[in-house]
């Protein structure tokens, strides 16, 4: 079950990878828009960056005990 899902996922990534070369951006404004698979890397590393950074921030600073404001 789990491996099937993983295979579907990988197949889908390969498909969008190839589609990126078939349909390149005709009007790029910036250099990264000329890379056909840029969004593959941006999506993957962007999501991981957000998770890791937000979790780090929450753990070290932002998250407090739920009675934080009520201990008076």
């Amino acid at each position: 079950m789990k491996t099937t899902r993983r295979r579907i996922m990988l197949a889908a990534i390969v498909v969008v990878f190839l589609l990126g070369f078939i349909f390149p951006n005709p009007h790029p404004h910036f250099w990264w828009q000329k890379i056909p698979v840029f969004d593959i890397f941006f999506g993957f590393f962007g999501s991981i960056l957000l998770i890791v950074f937000a979790k780090w921030l929450g753990h070290n600073w932002l998250l407090k005990d739920k009675d934080y404001y009520n201990n008076d």
């Binding site: 993957f44 590393f45 962007g46 999501s47 991981i48």
Partner: peptide, 11 residues
């Protein structure tokens, strides 16, 4: 968009 969304799902 599909690239972006799919790889966010992977992440």
């Amino acid at each position: 968009s599909l690239q972006l969304l799919l790889l966010t799902l992977a992440g």
